[in-house]
Design a protein around this nucleic acid. Sequence first.
DNA 1: TCTTGACCTTCCAGTAACCGGAACGCCCAT
DNA 2: ATGGGCGTTCCGGTTACTGGAAGGTCAAGA
Lengths: 133, 133
Amino acid sequence: MNIGDVARQSGLPAKTIRYYEDIDLIKPLRDSNGYRAFRESDLHKLTFLGRARSLGFSIAECRALMALYEDQERASADVKKIARQHLNRIDEKLAELKAMRATLSDLIEACAGDHRPDCPILKGLAGGKIQAK
Amino acid sequence: MNIGDVARQSGLPAKTIRYYEDIDLIKPLRDSNGYRAFRESDLHKLTFLGRARSLGFSIAECRALMALYEDQERASADVKKIARQHLNRIDEKLAELKAMRATLSDLIEACAGDHRPDCPILKGLAGGKIQAK
DNA sequence: TCTTGACCTTCCAGTAACCGGAACGCCCAT
DNA sequence: ATGGGCGTTCCGGTTACTGGAAGGTCAAGA
């Protein structure tokens, strides 16, 4: 398989696949013409990587997950630990975004949004308190 | 005021303040010794920037907000528009994170997390379905 | 056979928003 | 004068790619 084939099948851009080779996440063979020659196992790994990335795992975590994926002797506890840590970070990020959202939507609420220059959003950002409408 | 003073008062790292000058968000004066000389207005702008950034506005948006902040003739509608766009992006990000969280927590649920190699998390990432416990 | 177009290759640069550190200058107090 | 705590610039690194240039390869059609 050439890179275009695995790109289509894995859903990853060719650029990304080359990058993953660059950072040693995959090690495809090479044809005599210099083209990358992907095995089924490479495609499986790329699919795995794509899914892990889409769940927000970092490249470093993907590397660790891949190692466990390849290790038939792994303990599922090790995988679960990584996943739990990631879940915690997702929860933190969610809390942060919710707080942002709340503040921002209060500011927006309070702003008339018309031709006049008076603007509670700018006041809020400048340090003032949010005024009730 | 020197950079340390405004850093303390604005809550921004000195590095960040230098960076903001670099990208022309602020234009502090200079003392004869080469030190940056910050006016009150610079401090206000930095505070404004710090708050806007903490609400997740991008630098580009901050630049636009700053321009409106400085423009006494602005229409609050222009500010509100930027804020609403940002709110939409926050909502999209929230939806995405919630979806990630749901999938990931299902996988974690299904995983025994013990010494055995069998792992629904790895299976899920490899493309398999998530098994019920 | 030549050419066209779709592939593929490498390498370089840029993205966002900074952070860390080196190497150096300035200022004030002891 | 010397030490510590400021300040300065500049360079490189971070994350995970993406875009583009310049060029090689391959198969099909005229």
